[in-house]
Write a protein that binds this DNA or RNA. Structure first.
Lengths: 99, 99
DNA sequence: CTCATATTTAGGAATATTCCTAAATAAGGA
DNA sequence: TCCTTATTTAGGAATATTCCTAAATATGAG
């Protein structure tokens, strides 16, 4: 799953899907690569379970799989033992952080 | 930086360094790979600024660079627009999470 | 069935990663 | 200086990633 996040194009795909679900073609149009290349990136994200796919007629709709993304984040957090306070935009003040 | 996190050995190195700083040799002893191979992994982590290194006599001491790790986490969070609540071990109740 | 559209799979070239052994470098002690 | 210890750099083989073009598949319209 970290492997899937390792390529900038795949992270950008996730950022686009964070806004709303999109078709394969619509996603592909955002990048300067061929459709088959983009399809390969979709496969990597799907294998990592970071996105789900659903067919609608001839088009395939890709969606961000939020729960798995959250698991990824949880794993990275516990790996580094970071509380999460540091991540938001404006960490006003500490909650019950007992270090 | 995501690239640096993509290899399991490098994530395990970070997990070890999260506990406390360690020498190159001490780190290498935790893995079934040669010293030069491990040294290569250290270089990747250093290039990604995820660890710092300091010489102490003949040994090199590696330390987790927490601030950069936090930035990584923040980046992943904003990429996926996740609040961070989902990550901790026991998310008792919501803070000022206003969705 | 045939055609057009949307998307994928197949095959292959260029490049990057990962691991090894052998040799080099750095530091300190006798 | 010479030796030992700690660690790195150098060079190379095996494997994986990334991208392409060409061909295949899937679906719906006519």
């Amino acid at each position: 799953m970290f492997q899937a996040l390792a390529h900038p194009v795949r992270r950008d795909i996730l950022a686009l899907l964070r806004e709303h679900a999109r078709s394969a073609g619509e996603l592909a149009d955002h990048f300067p690569y061929s459709k088959p290349t983009m399809s390969g990136h979709f496969n990597v994200l799907r294998d990592a379970d970071l996105v789900t796919v659903e067919r609608q007629g001839t088009t395939l709709i890709y969606r961000l799989n939020v729960s798995v993304a959250e698991d990824a984040l949880a794993g990275l957090m516990s790996l580094l033992r970071i509380d999460g306070e540091a991540a938001g935009a404006a960490p006003a003040r500490k909650k019950g952080a007992k270090p």
